[in-house]
Design a protein around this nucleic acid. Structure first.
Length: 217
DNA sequence: CTGTGGATTTGCT
DNA sequence: GCAAATCCACAGG
């Protein structure tokens, strides 16, 4: 029997492939711009939700002494919260902030090094109506309002720490995945990271130039 | 358009 | 105790 017209797509497009883990073994300032244009997807009860990554920030591990990054959660070493950052590349580091919001990161560099990439904004691609509903918006909402910020992104995809922290994003069989298709990013812009006090001058925020789904247009 | 306060976890001082 | 990798509602000009 036919699916109702409003049902979320049950499958991922066939040409979407898991991002290779070797890409993520590099330092975060190289991985971050390389993640622009990739896809973050989550399998929800009603089907897959996905968005294209349009804005990211790099956070440097404490082994980098030439340009210390006290804004990184890993700066003072391992804790219960940041443990996954020190683990293998390609896993999700999800944390709770300001008593209200979750933020999602991709770990990078070999095990023992704590580089990671904060995913700051997505352009909705799959299950857009369901993503809007997760944010309390109607299907008619501006797509640029759905996941244009790190907290919004997690809410739109239904990502939380209890369910998703530590999951492998590139094993190819998870509920939460980092994927790629044939999309070729255009111009990439670089600037200062948002919302931090220390090391605010480091050019570690990257976004797709002119994309309306970036958190500050 | 700008500014402010509230939601309430985590980890350092 | 307090500030933080945030967002939204609402007040005021």
């Amino acid at each position: 029997m036919p699916l109702p017209a409003h049902a979320a797509p049950p499958h991922l497009p066939q040409d979407w492939r898991a991002v290779g883990r070797e890409l993520l073994l590099q330092p975060p300032e190289l991985v971050a711009p390389a993640l622009l244009g990739k896809l973050l997807a989550r399998q929800a009860a009603a089907g897959w939700l996905a968005g294209r990554v349009v804005e990211v920030e790099a956070y440097l591990g404490p082994h980098i002494t030439a340009t210390p990054d006290p804004a990184a959660h890993s700066f003072r070493g391992i804790t219960d919260r940041n443990r996954v950052m020190f683990g293998p590349a390609g896993h999700a580091y999800v944390y709770f902030i300001y008593g209200m919001h979750f933020c999602a990161n991709v770990t990078c560099e070999p095990e023992g090094l704590a580089g990671c990439i904060l995913l700051r904004a997505l352009e909705p691609v799959l299950g857009t109506d369901a993503m809007a509903a997760n944010r309390g918006l109607t299907p008619a909402a501006n797509p640029a309002a759905i996941a244009s910020g790190p907290g919004k992104l997690c809410r739109a995809l239904g990502i939380d720490r209890a369910s998703h922290n530590g999951l492998d994003l590139v094993a190819g069989d998870g509920e939460l995945r980092l994927l790629e298709d044939a999309f070729q990013p255009g111009e990439i812009a670089v600037g200062r990271r948002i919302g931090i006090r220390h090391a605010a001058d480091l050019p570690l925020r990257f976004w797709l130039s002119g994309n309306p789904c970036v958190s500050r247009a």
